[in-house]
Design a protein around this nucleic acid. Structure first.
Lengths: 242, 242
DNA sequence: CTTGACATTGACCCAAGGTCAGGGTTCGAA
DNA sequence: TTCGAACCCTGACCTTGGGTCAATGTCAAG
């Protein structure tokens, strides 16, 4: 006849856990000795080890109770299922490990692979880090507002980036961020952008009716990172279209 | 500017979780719009994804908070540590899987490998299943009362089982379980056992002073599975020694 | 103008125990 | 035999990471 402390040590659980299992009706309350101490037998030890093994596998205590009362056939089936879920958890943990490894790295954690590729293209093109970050933040917002539209638009963008005129425009817009709103180059840039928008390659089939300027506006207005020159460019654009 | 619902959907967490993170000071409270709704930016989305990734890896939210405030060097070090603990959890899960697989199987889950081997020896010797179970339960109790002594004693037992006289005695004790306490064979059996105990091979070095009868008593008295004949055998033994 | 989806705060609930308080018991050593 | 250490008892509250419910406010579309 062993005490609760010895039982707990044998099974590798705490005394508190043993009493918890009693309260849940998982482990039979043993008889008490003359001073009211619980006195356990080997049966209890075996039972407790079963409970512990199942609990360690992540089986909720409620189910552990069922399982221990069920007949062997059911137990075997449940074991197989538990094993499958355990395997899944192992796979998930491994995936998380990879993401953790990349956390301190690039943008691929925050945007879809397509967008990340596009951002890489921009970096290669020579766009400033600030510009790339602005784009990235725009896509994050876009993906959260409308993942479907974002997928269509990124496809369009990846086509556009193949156009030398678009690339040139993008770079100029990028550097225009720091210009004064009175800079004489702004009207010409706005007009050139407008021309490109009108005669640009056909849009992807089934694309939404929303125009790029809306995206630009969303991005620039939302991230809080807008520049006087860009505001002026948008203004000129509106004037030209009206 | 996105709403809490859009932010939560983007990061793959619930709205409740986002507010929970605010309460814990994990995620900065964004500004509210005119109607008091929270309005988030891409920065929040990125921050939230970081939190989610770390939380999924099992990092407590308290530590997540520290990590996000720490400088990159510390973060990198912490990541490495988290990765290690993740790896350990994967290994543990694999071990648990194996134990789960063996749960419905033999005794190896309940006793040490040495004891399990010893029990297998007994089975091979022809000891009854009841007898093996009694031994097993005795070892479980013993291991819980005093793992150190149990280890020494099992070593002794595994030496003794090599002795033909011990094997013969064990088998006779095993069958004596069912005898009447008045059976005429009992005194002879008790005497034979006594002789073996006296002249048996030298005990393992550093062994404790406790004698085997104490073990027998513990086992038989504790499992609740005692037999009249065994009680009588113990009594005769005490008489002989006095 | 209503309806349905979404937002707000606050309060309570869950597993699986941990911790603390305020006692009683047992055992070995002095 | 008496002391201290190490056990044991119950009961009540604390923890983490949220879920659920309630009562109320707001938004956008038909």
């Amino acid at each position: 006849m062993i005490t609760i402390g010895q039982l707990a040590a044998y099974a590798g659980v705490t005394i508190k856990a043993v009493r918890h299992y009693h309260k849940l009706g998982l482990l039979e309350e043993p008889s008490r000795d003359s001073s009211g101490y619980r006195r356990y037998t080997a049966e209890h030890a075996i039972h407790l080890l079963k409970i512990k093994t199942l609990a360690e596998a992540g089986v909720p205590l409620g189910r552990v109770k069922e399982l221990l009362a069920a007949d062997p056939d059911q137990v075997a089936a449940a074991m197989a299922e538990i094993d499958r879920s355990l395997e899944m958890r192992v796979r998930e943990l491994r995936r998380t490990r990879q993401r953790i490894a990349r956390l301190s790295g690039g943008d691929r954690l925050f945007v879809s692979a397509e967008v990340a590729d596009y951002l890489d293209d921009l970096r290669e093109l020579g766009v400033s880090e600030r510009g790339v970050r602005l784009e990235r933040d725009g896509w994050i917002l876009l993906q959260s507002v409308s993942p479907k539209n974002a997928a269509v638009w990124i496809a369009e963008k990846r086509v556009a980036i193949g156009d030398p005129e678009f690339r040139a425009l993008y770079l100029e817009y990028d550097s225009a961020y720091d210009w004064s709103p009175d800079d004489p180059r702004l009207p010409a840039l706005a007009e050139r952008a407008q021309r490109w928008l009108v005669k640009r390659p056909d849009r992807v089939e089934g694309g939404p009716p929303l125009r790029d300027p809306a995206l630009v506006q969303l991005v620039s207005s939302s991230t809080g990172s807008r520049s006087p020159a860009w505001d002026r460019l948008a203004e000129i654009g509106r004037e030209q279209r009206s």
